[in-house]
Design a binder for these strands. Structure first.
Lengths: 288, 288
DNA sequence: ATTGTTATTATCAAGTTGATAATAACAATC
DNA sequence: GATTGTTATTATCAACTTGATAATAACAAT
C-alpha cells in the first residue's frame, strides 16, 4: 500500500502539550546488538568492542557519507497599499539567467539555517536588520534530487515578514550576489516563471502566512509595532484577498491586542493604536 | 534590533489562498548586473558574457561549496490502550552508545527526504509498509552545527503515524542499523535521555500532532480505516492527555466523518463505524 | 454648522460550546 | 425472560460566538 503522505503540511501549535511527569526510565538491554552494516552516524560498522567517543571521533572520515549542498531560500513578504509583495532577485547566471528567484544562499559551516537566513536576508537584499522589525521562521525543506540541475542542493525555506508603514516598501539594494532585487505583487505576478522550484516555495510561504493568520497575530508582524485595527485589517485583505467587515474585525481582534491609549489622526475618526497582546486568536478565524 | 524569530513554528493550512489571476509578467532589466562575487548556485563569478546552461554545467565543480551530510529522523507514533507511543532504536555505537534514539538515516543521492523517510522506516523498524497504513509528513529541519559531535549532519525530521487497532502495537524488528527497536510511552518516558537533539525533535513531532488534531482529522491516521468515535476519542485522550466528553465529541466530530452503516459489537451499545469524511474540523477544537 | 469619512459600539438572529441528562442498544447475569 | 451493567447516541439549555447590519462618535474639510 502506498503510504498516506503529505509532503508539506503544517501544524497549528499552541502551548506545548500538557505532558505527564517523566516517570519511567527507558527499559531495554544496553548491550550492543548485531553488527551495524550501513553507514550512519552512530551505527558505523565497528566489529570489535564498543569504542570510546574519543577513538571514534579520531577515526571518522566525512567522505564516507553522501553529502549535499545546503542552502536557505527566503520568502520575504511585505505589505504596501493593501498589496502583498514578495522580494525577488534577478539571476545573473545560468541556469535561469535573467529570471526572478527568491533570495537565498549557502549555509556556512559554523551557522544553522536560521542564522543563514538572517545573514542572507541582509546580504542579498541590502536590508539593515538593525533598522527594521523582522520576523523569521522555518518553513519547509525542499530536497527533490533534481531541483537544481547542477548538483544536489537541499534548501531550507524560511518565511520572513518585514514590518512596514503600509504605504512604502523598504528599498531593496542589489546585494553582492544578485544583479537586481525587487518587490513583486504576490497575487498579480507570474509565479510560474520563478527559478528552480521557487514557485513551490513561494506557495508554501503564502499558505503558511495565510493559514497562521487564522489563529495567531502573525499579521501584526507586517505593520509597525504600534498599529491601528485598520492597518491590521489591510494586511488580512492583502494576504487573504478578501475584505473583512470592519466592525466584526474589531470585535474579534481586539481581544488579542493591547491598547496603547494613543490615537492617530487621519481623515475620519481618530483610530486607536494597539500592540500585540497575545500571540493567539481564540477561537480562530476561518478564511472566507 | 534582534530579529523576531521563532525557529520552529508551524502553520495551519487550509484550502490554498484565493490568489488573483497571474497577470503581470516580471518587470525589470534582464541584463547581467554587477559581477557576482560569492559562491552561490546561479551567481558564480563569471566575468565574461553570460554562458549557456550547457557550458555552465560542464565547468561546475561541486567541491567549491560547503557540504553537509543529510539525514532524516523519524518521529513514529502509535496508540495502544489510550497511551501514545514513539518508536526508538538503541544506539549501537558512540556517541550516545546504549541510549535511545529516533530511527533515521542518510538521504541517498537519488531520493528526496520523503522517500528517505519511508525507506528508513522500513529498514530501521522492520515495518512492512505494504501491510500497514502509514501517514508521513515533513516536520522541520534541525541544523545546529554541533548537533552531531562528529560532523555536520543536518536532519529533516518527519512525523509518521501508524494505524493500529488500539490495543496492540506493531512488532518492531531490529533493523540493519540498530541493535534494538522498541516502543516507549511518550508521556511517561524520560525524553531528555534521547540521543543528539532527538528530545527536541520528539517535542516538535508531539506538538505538530497535538496541534493538527485541533483542526484536522489527522487523529484518524492512528486508528483503522473504519473506526468508532470511541476509538478516535481514545486517540485524543492519548495525545492531549485529557478526556473529552463523549457526547460533545460525537456531536462535533461526526460532521467530519462518513458513516459506513456498519456497527461493531463490544460491551454496551453497538458503536457505528465511520471513515474520514473531511480532512478538516471546522470550527477547530481548542485543547482543554 | 454641515458634510464626508472613518472608527467604534450596538443589536439581533443563527449557530456553537460545555455541561448535563435522557434515551437506546446491547451482554451478562440472575 | 426480566434485570442490571455498560456504552453509544441524542437531547436540552444557558452562555457564548458569528455574520449581517445599523447606530453612534470623532474628527477634517467645506
Amino acid at each position: 500500500m502506498i503510504p498516506n503522505s503529505s509532503q508539506d503540511s503544517q501544524a497549528r501549535p499552541g502551548s506545548l502539550g500538557v505532558g505527564g511527569p517523566p516517570t519511567k526510565a527507558r527499559p531495554g538491554s544496553l548491550g550492543v546488538g548485531g553488527p551495524p552494516t550501513k553507514a550512519r552516524p552512530g551505527s558505523l560498522g565497528v566489529g570489535g568492542p564498543p569504542e570510546t567517543e574519543a577513538t571514534f571521533l579520531a577515526g571518522y572520515d566525512p567522505k564516507d557519507y553522501p553529502s549535499v549542498a545546503l542552502t536557505v531560500d527566503l520568502v520575504v513578504f511585505a505589505v504596501a497599499n493593501k498589496v502583498l509583495h514578495v522580494a525577488v532577485v534577478e539571476r545573473g547566471a545560468q541556469p535561469f539567467l535573467g529570471n526572478w528567484a527568491l533570495p537565498g544562499g549557502f549555509v556556512q559551516p559554523g551557522e544553522d539555517a536560521l542564522a543563514a537566513a538572517n545573514r542572507e536576508l541582509a546580504e542579498e537584499t541590502g536590508l539593515d536588520l538593525g533598522a527594521h522589525r523582522v520576523f523569521v521562521e522555518q518553513l519547509a525543506t525542499f530536497s527533490a534530487p533534481q531541483r537544481d540541475p547542477r548538483m544536489r542542493v537541499v534548501s531550507v525555506a524560511h518565511l520572513i515578514l518585514l514590518a512596514g508603514d503600509g504605504t512604502n516598501l523598504v528599498e531593496l539594494r542589489s546585494g553582492t550576489d544578485a544583479s537586481d532585487a525587487q518587490w513583486l505583487p504576490v497575487h498579480a505576478m507570474d509565479r510560474t516563471s520563478l527559478a528552480f522550484d521557487h514557485a513551490d516555495i513561494l506557495a508554501a510561504g503564502l499558505e503558511r502566512l495565510a493559514g497562521k493568520m487564522e489563529y495567531t497575530t502573525i499579521a501584526a508582524q507586517l505593520v509597525p509595532e504600534e498599529f491601528t485595527l485598520s492597518a491590521l485589517r489591510d494586511v488580512y485583505a492583502a494576504v487573504w484577498q478578501a475584505e473583512l467587515p470592519a466592525g466584526n474585525f474589531t470585535r474579534k481582534m481586539r481581544t488579542s491586542l493591547t491598547p496603547t491609549g494613543r490615537k492617530v489622526q487621519a481623515v475620519g475618526a481618530p483610530a486607536s493604536l494597539f500592540t500585540i497582546g497575545s500571540e493567539w486568536i481564540s477561537p480562530p478565524w476561518s478564511r472566507p
